[in-house]
Design a protein around this nucleic acid. Structure first.
Length: 657
RNA sequence: GCGCCUGUAGCUCAGGGGAUAGAGCAACGGUUUCCUAAACCGUAGGUCGGAGGUUCGAAUCCUCUCAGGCGCACCA
């Protein structure tokens, strides 16, 4: 039994007599904003004032008189304009807590209307090393997957790997021209990775070279536009002058932008040109960009050699990626990559054409839809398919295969428009009522407020990112251990283990604790801080609670089974009890908008309430045995809730640190 | 030019129709013969970018506006 749903169902009975559909009103029952108003509050009377034509307080009185919550709550109070304030009975809190003590699920009921979810997250290109941009999708998706499962839903996690695109054309091209056989025999993946980078660099070199004149003339044109704008005499009209000034500012910004693009392009060229070997290679492969596309096209056409190479490379690449997933403990039920859909793409396009949903325009097959300026192109004029085509084939397969109630795409916000179009197109196909949701998220920024990059401007490899976090965690852990009042207690091996959990936890938690829609600033120092809303703090709190048990030589499993009852006497005990029982509310909030930060906020709040309790209520030193045991069980529930909560975030706990 | 997102304390961020807008960090003050002081308690800090509007009630919804970010047919 979960508190909020229970209260809502009680209110539903009463409200159904007043309105046709009370669903919306039930959303106005929520945790009290301030503890002095009680534990929960119902704000339903005010909006009903107008509908029913009666003073809200009168309505509130009527609702309260009919409301049957006497087993759960103290008599409800009406306050202000018509707030109904609810305070849970201590007896009931105790009853619920005692149930939670003996329950694997900590008293959290499974959803009584389980749904089937397909979750699409992570989805890296297997040929490229993963970088910081992939972590957010992976971590958010994994957490949602875990949370939905815990709540009793059926979840199918499907990693839509990029295993069929241009990157493989690059590797194939690189393999054919630049492979170091020895290196490949001894360590294939690093060699393939090197080839990818090399080919990519050469392609970009030639692209940059081709673009250079355009960029230069663009800069010149923009600079001139600024000069022209500057030379405009003031008109004397304030509004017009202001507008002109604004226009000038915009033009100047464009000059800066053009100059930056040009500088970056030149830097790219210089990097190749100053390296005589690279430079030579670049000269020897002037058509590398189109040749790479041709290798890709050949693969897609079924060219025997390229297909053989792809078959050879793919398992190696996947193995490499799997290592990373193992390290961060992320699993998928399926990994149907893009290649899986390859032979369905033509059919998708045909179907769209057959039903008159798509037509040819400028040589491409396009889906035109109301509300969009540009069509969704599903086949290029050269006959090749696009990721929009793959997405359509994929959704068709998923719906047929798994008959989901919802499909969630955990993908960064820049693809918002693509998903709008894609969802609209999927609707045209007449798919049944499937909830399609782009679970979008913002960019990870560096200290400078720009997308997180290394000093030299490269994207940060995920592996290196994790290594650094773990290494920094190690020094945090060691420093903490060294300064313990009774001397260090962790051996080297245990420090390493703890550092691993702390470092990886810090990275994940940083991603999950921010509202996913906003960008956030990446900072090792902040995410590894021992205070504040961090995984480290929660892990430490967990270890502290554990410390109580070991210090007191408590067999907590035995105590749980003893049938000892929790008792609520002190306000701090009550506050902790209530917070513990709100776990299910927090999980419901996560699922509501697919926002894991609802859970991190809850866990942080719980931990603060716990420490407040811990400060005020001696546990091991409690006078009466009954008090001591009751408090031990409160500690135990706190620890278990933190552990379970962190687990749903994909983060491990440590017994001591 | 069009579209989407963001703007909340010095900093990093919660809160997304309800009562006096919150947390962490930083600052300042207090608490330790006492279960890890990595804690706890307190003080200070805000025209919620700005202006209108809707509402009994707006940081939250709508319109306009300013600032920043990101996208805008044949890359994914």
């Amino acid at each position: 039994m979960n508190i909020l749903p229970e209260l809502k169902s009680r209110f539903r009975v009463v409200l159904s007599e007043l309105v046709d559909d009370p669903t919306e009103l039930l959303g106005m029952i929520r945790p009290a904003q301030d503890a002095k108003f009680g534990d929960y509050q119902a704000n339903v009377a005010m909006p009903l004032g107008k509908t029913l034509g009666k003073p809200p307080r009168e309505i509130a009185t009527e609702i309260v008189s009919k409301l049957d919550v006497s087993d759960i709550c103290e008599p409800p109070e009406i306050a202000g304009p018509g707030f109904i304030n609810l305070r849970l009975k201590d007896d009931w809190l105790v009853f619920r807590l005692n149930h939670a003590v003996g329950d694997q699920r900590l008293g959290v009921a499974a959803d009584n209307e389980p749904r089937t979810y397909v979750l699409d997250y992570s989805s890296p290109n297997v040929a490229k090393p993963m970088h910081v941009g992939h972590i957010r999708s992976t971590v958010i998706g994994d957490s949602l997957s875990r949370t939905l499962r815990f709540l009793g839903h059926q979840v199918i996690s499907d990693n839509h790997l990029g295993d069929w695109g241009t990157q493989f054309g690059m590797i194939i091209y690189g393999f054919k021209h630049f492979v170091d056989r020895n290196a490949y025999e001894t360590a294939p993946v690093p060699e393939l990775s090197r080839l990818y980078k090399l080919v990519n660099q050469l392609v970009e070199y030639h692209n940059a070279k081709a673009k250079l004149p355009t960029l230069e003339s663009e800069l010149a044109a923009r600079t001139e536009a600024v000069a022209t704008q500057r030379s405009q005499p003031a008109t004397g009209d304030k509004a017009a002058d202001k507008k002109a000034k604004k226009e000038l500012g915009k033009l100047e910004a464009k000059v800066t932008e053009a100059a930056e693009t040009l500088a970056a392009t030149r830097a790219k060229l210089a990097a190749v040109e100053k390296d005589s070997k690279l430079s030579e290679l670049a000269d020897q492969h002037p058509n590398i960009a189109s040749d790479v596309l041709e290798e890709t096209a050949k693969l897609h056409r079924g060219d025997e050699e390229n297909r053989r190479l792809w078959d050879e490379f793919l398992p190696k690449c996947r193995e490499e990626i799997q290592k990373l997933y193992d390290r961060i403990d992320v699993k998928f039920d399926f990994e149907y990559g893009e290649s899986f859909y390859h032979d369905r793409l033509a059919g998708v396009v045909e179907e769209f054409e057959k039903h008159g949903l798509a037509r040819e325009s400028e040589g491409a097959i396009c889906v035109f839809m109301d509300g969009f300026d540009a069509p969704m192109i599903i086949r290029k004029k050269d006959g090749a398919f696009l990721y929009a085509t793959t997405d359509l084939a994929t959704i068709q397969f998923r719906i047929q295969q798994w008959k989901p109630d919802a499909i969630l795409y955990v993908v960064d916000h820049r693809q918002g428009e693509h998903f709008e179009k894609f969802f609209a197109a999927a609707k045209l196909c007449g798919y049944p009522d499937v909830e399609l949701c782009h679970v979008s998220f913002g960019t990870v920024l560096g200290d400078d407020g720009k997308p997180f990059k290394t000093r030299s401007g490269d994207t940060v490899g995920l592996e290196a990112l994790l290594d650094e976090a773990v290494q920094r965690a190690y020094s945090v852990v060691s420093q903490n251990d060294d300064t313990k009042p009774n001397g260090p207690e962790l051996g080297e091996a245990e420090r390493r283990r703890v550092a691993d959990a702390v470092g990886l936890g810090a990275i994940k938690y940083a991603d999950l604790s921010h509202n996913r829609t906003s960008d956030y600033v990446f900072s090792y120092d902040k995410m590894l801080a021992l205070t504040g809303n961090t995984a480290t703090y929660l892990q430490y709190s967990y270890a502290r609670v554990n410390g109580i048990f070991s210090k007191g030589s408590i067999d907590i499993a035995k105590l749980r089974a003893d049938g000892t009852s929790i008792q609520i006497v002190e306000p701090a005990e009550r506050a902790l009890a209530l917070e513990l029982l709100r776990f299910s509310d927090a999980l419901a909030d996560v699922v509501e908008d697919y926002r894991p930060n609802q859970l991190t906020n809850y866990l942080f709040q719980l931990t603060k309430v716990f420490f407040s309790f811990y400060e005020q209520c001696p546990v091991l030193k409690a006078e009466a045995d009954q008090t001591r045991n009751s408090r031990l069980l409160l500690c135990d529930l706190t620890a278990r809730t933190i552990r379970q909560g962190l687990n749903l975030l994909g983060i491990n706990v440590i017994d001591r640190m």
